[in-house]
Nucleic acid binder design. Structure first.
Length: 202
DNA sequence: CTAAAGATGTCCT
DNA sequence: GGACATCTTTAGA
């Protein structure tokens, strides 16, 4: 049923969308469509929860102590996917922000599935739509995102990109503290759509 | 080289 | 609310 809510074919956001303050991009990504193109399937979801991670000024960020092999894409050109592996089993998806040379990324924490739901259910091994992508590692599992997409250019409209929602409903943005970090816990750089049931934690 | 933590999810109590 | 899976990265000796 939710598959009938389709988006029009729309262009991926240009690099200028990402080449801005990370916190601002984190807010503006809410309500936008995350698109994953597989060989025979199209997966789409409305982004409903994000977190901003910056650089030297953000002790919770992977980029805080400077570039490493893992985080190098955070220092590169904006508008690329930063996918990292954690806890020995999970992947998390970020989009890079800020001008090249200046680190920044937005963690995509949750999405509301709108297309390819059957495929997502298979990948997540559940029939509960609310459990498909309400968390960063659940989302990457549902959307078939692994480290092979690390560094992928999101402005090309190919395997992975973000685009406009055709007819968005109005929503309110709520900010809160970021989840799962132990430093810089006071910053309210987590953003989510108020009352949306696909957010990981209200 | 060694060790601990990790932008998490799942299952159990 | 807590244990645990599982392994890469990073920090520190």
């Amino acid at each position: 049923m939710q598959d009938s809510l389709s988006t029009i074919t729309s262009a991926p956001f240009p690099r200028t969308f990402y080449e801005r303050n990370t916190v601002r991009v984190a807010k503006e990504l809410l309500g936008k469509v995350l698109v994953r193109r597989l060989n025979s399937t199209l997966l789409e979801g409305i982004i409903v929860e994000t977190e901003a991670y910056r650089g030297r000024d953000d002790a919770a960020s992977h980029a805080y102590r400077g570039p490493t092999k893992r985080n190098q894409v955070m220092f590169g050109e904006p508008g690329h996917a930063y996918v990292y592996f954690t806890y020995g089993m999970h992947y998390c998806l970020n989009v890079t922000t800020e001008p090249a040379g200046q680190p920044g990324a937005v963690l995509i924490r949750a999405a509301q599935p709108i297309k390819g739901i059957a495929e997502m259910k298979r990948r997540r091994r559940t029939d509960n739509v609310k459990d498909l992508s309400n968390g960063p590692a659940k989302l990457t599992q549902a959307f078939a995102i692994t480290s092979t997409l690390n560094g992928h250019d999101l402005t090309l409209g190919r395997k992975l990109y973000v685009t406009e929602l055709f007819r968005p409903d109005p929503f309110t943005i709520v900010s809160g503290t970021r989840i799962g970090i132990r430093v810089a816990v006071e910053r309210r750089w987590r953003f989510f759509v108020k009352d949306n049931p696909f957010v990981s934690k209200q």
